[in-house]
């Protein structure tokens, strides 16, 4: 199981990095979202993998999944959305001002 999870994480990071390195703002945004999935996921698994042990106190159980990484990741997901939205709007605004969506602001080639 650990191997599968690590592989998923690695693939998400790799895809995110590849997209980050592309030349168009939209691809960069996609890469960023993938990266934030992966980073949140990474934070989450530092609490290790637990099955059927949600951190909801009940008299029947005595072991629970680690709630701390979960709390950290919960807010990170929401803030991640705000940051994604910010980057998207920045990309829109820059694309509008520069009349191109190339990350370096290179003008479009005329056909």
């Amino acid at each position: 199981m650990e191997l599968l999870i690590s592989a998923c994480l690695g693939v998400m990071i790799a895809c995110g990095v590849y997209l980050l390195l592309r030349a168009r703002t939209f691809s960069v945004v996609l890469g960023l979202i993938l990266m934030s999935f992966a980073v949140n996921f990474f934070l989450f698994i530092t609490g290790r993998l637990h099955t059927d042990l949600p951190a909801i106190i009940s008299p029947d159980r005595s072991i629970y999944a680690d709630p701390l990484p979960q709390a950290l990741v919960l807010t990170a997901i929401v803030i991640g959305f705000a940051m994604t939205a910010f980057v998207v709007v920045l990309a829109l605004r820059a694309g509008r001002e520069l009349e191109t969506d190339h990350v370096d602001g290179k003008p479009e080639k005329t056909q």
């Binding site: 650990e2 994480l9 895809c15 990474f42």
Partner: peptide, 14 residues
């Protein structure tokens, strides 16, 4: 680069 970064992150997770 993506392969190295992803491989590194995956190994770290492992």
């Amino acid at each position: 680069l993506a392969g190295l970064a992803g491989g590194g992150a995956g190994a770290l997770a492992m």
